[in-house]
C-alpha cells in the first residue's frame, strides 16, 4: 500500500514539474502565426517552383504579406490568381498581359550535330560540361537532361537529341535557365498576336568552324540583320534578337526564310492571358 502511494506521488510530482515547465516555456516561446498566411497559402497553386523568387509557396505568402508588395507575382497562377491576391491583401500593383516564352538556343538534332568522341563519365550536364564532353560543338546542348530533371511541370523533353519545349506545360519559372551549364535557355517576352522568334544557336565561332561541327549553326553571315526594319544584331559571330525592337511580323518572317542554315526558329506561344 505504501509502495503504491509513494509511486503515485513521485510520478505525479515529476509529471507535474515537467508540465509546469512546458506550460511556462510555451507562453514564452510562442510563435504567433498570422491566419492571413494560411488563407493566402490556400489560394496559391502549391507547386513550390520558385518562379516568384521566394523559396516555395509558403515563403511567397509570408513575403508578400510582410512587405505588402507582390514582387514578380505567382507565374503559374496566371492573371486571375495575381489579381485575387492583389485585391485580398490590398497591394498597390497591376497585372500585365505579357507571357514569357521559353526558348532553347540550340536547335540542332541528332543528324545535324557532329559527335566524334565517346564520353564515359557521369551522365549529367554539369559534370559533362566540366570537360566539354558530348558533342563537337562546345556551345551546344549536352543532351543529358539536367533541365528535364529540374522542370517542375515536365515541359521539357529530348526528341532526337534536341530539346523540345511543351509550351502548354511551361510555367516560365526559370529553373532550367539557371540549371543549364551552357546557359542555352532564355525567357523571351511574347505579345499576341505575334509568335515568338529566336535564333536556335549559341556558337560564337566563325562560320567555317561552325559548319565543321554542325549543320544548323549560326555562321554569323548577317543576312538577318540586313532585312528592312530588322530587330536582329550580330555580336561575336552570333545573331541575337532584340525583343524591344520588334514592331512588325514581316521582317521576322523574311529573316527566317533568308537564313542560309535555317537557324531562326518560330514558336507559337500558348495561354496568353486574355
Amino acid at each position: 500500500m505504501n509502495d503504491i502511494v509513494i509511486s503515485i506521488l513521485s510520478l505525479g510530482l515529476i509529471g507535474l514539474g515537467f508540465s509546469l515547465l512546458l506550460a511556462f516555456l510555451n507562453k514564452k516561446l510562442r510563435v504567433k502565426e498570422d491566419p492571413l498566411i494560411e488563407k493566402t497559402l490556400n489560394l496559391l497553386p502549391g507547386l513550390n517552383c520558385g518562379a516568384c523568387g521566394s523559396s516555395g509557396c509558403r515563403a511567397f505568402a509570408e513575403n508578400i504579406i510582410k512587405h505588402k508588395k507582390i514582387f514578380n507575382g505567382c507565374l503559374p497562377g496566371g492573371k486571375e490568381l495575381n489579381e485575387t491576391l492583389i485585391k485580398l491583401l490590398g497591394i498597390d500593383a497591376k497585372v500585365s498581359d505579357h507571357k514569357l516564352v521559353l526558348v532553347c538556343h540550340c536547335g540542332a538534332d541528332k543528324q545535324q550535330k557532329k559527335k566524334s568522341h565517346s564520353y564515359q563519365g557521369p551522365k549529367n550536364c554539369v559534370a559533362a560540361d566540366i570537360i566539354s564532353a558530348g558533342y563537337d560543338c562546345i556551345y551546344s546542348c549536352l543532351g543529358f537532361g539536367d533541365c528535364i530533371e529540374v522542370c517542375p511541370t515536365a515541359a521539357l523533353s529530348l526528341k532526337d537529341e534536341k530539346i523540345h519545349i511543351d509550351q502548354e506545360k511551361c510555367i516560365s519559372c526559370g529553373r532550367c535557365v539557371k540549371k543549364c551549364p551552357r546557359r542555352l535557355f532564355e525567357l523571351t517576352p511574347a505579345r499576341e498576336p505575334m509568335d515568338s522568334f529566336f535564333v536556335a544557336c549559341n556558337s560564337k565561332e566563325k562560320g567555317k568552324n561552325v559548319t565543321a561541327v554542325c549543320k544548323r549553326g549560326c555562321i554569323g553571315c548577317g543576312i538577318c540583320t540586313r532585312v528592312d526594319n530588322s530587330p536582329f544584331y550580330l555580336k561575336n559571330n552570333l545573331a541575337y534578337l532584340d525583343y524591344s525592337r520588334i514592331e512588325q511580323l514581316k521582317p521576322l518572317e523574311e529573316a527566317k526564310s533568308k537564313c542560309p542554315t535555317k537557324c531562326i526558329d518560330r514558336i507559337v506561344p500558348i495561354t496568353i492571358y486574355v
Binding site: D3, I6, S7, S10, L11, G15, F18, L21, L22, L25
Partner: peptide, 22 residues
C-alpha cells in the same frame, strides 16, 4: 531512494518527451 525502480521506463520516457518538446 524510495524503491521505485519499476517506474524506470515511464520516468525516462517522460523526461525525454518533455525535453524533445522543449
Amino acid at each position: 531512494a524510495f524503491n521505485l525502480i519499476f517506474l524506470e521506463y515511464v520516468v525516462f520516457i517522460l523526461v525525454i518527451a518533455s525535453l524533445v518538446q522543449i
